[in-house]
Design a binder for these strands. Structure first.
Lengths: 78, 78
DNA sequence: TACCATTTGTCCGTATGTATG
DNA sequence: CCATACATACGGACAAATGGT
């Protein structure tokens, strides 16, 4: 999965889309955590803030629940 | 040893420089641990993340080896 | 065995400064 | 001006490893 750093779509939106697709595909089941911020930073070669923004998009969509000190856990598939 | 919180040099870099000087001067001999994160926080009045970053600089330079549950031990003098 | 203190590891929350488009 | 993005810095909480009681 690649990120387009030139195009008009913000990186964090692209990362959020990738994660959303994985959740909706069942690759990350409900109750399971999405990749940590550090993992996302590595995988997509992005800054932490960008990783956090991506996860917050999913949180605002109700797809994941963020737990301080633990991670962001899938709550459903939308 | 004082830290300049206004200047352009990041605090963690300054702390790393202080520790590096102590190591190269032999104040902290090979095999001995550098001060713990908690100690560095107290001594320099910095946040834990800043202390960790400073030690990681030395680790990346090969000056110390970090062991979880133990500390960061001087491996040499560069 | 259990418990505890110390230390590093890993999270999230927040804020500021800088730079770019 | 504003959104995006990165680096720095502080704070709080929980997890894991270590060593001792």
């Amino acid at each position: 999965v690649t990120i387009d750093r030139e195009g008009p779509v913000p990186i964090y939106q692209q990362v959020a889309s990738v994660l959303r697709a994985r959740i909706e595909a069942g690759d990350i089941a409900p109750g399971r955590p999405v990749p940590s911020e550090a993992s996302l930073m590595q995988e997509f070669e992005i800054a932490r803030e960008t990783a956090r923004k991506a996860v917050r998009v999913l949180r605002d969509e109700g797809l994941v629940q963020i737990v301080q000190g633990r991670g962001a856990y899938v709550t459903g598939r939308g």
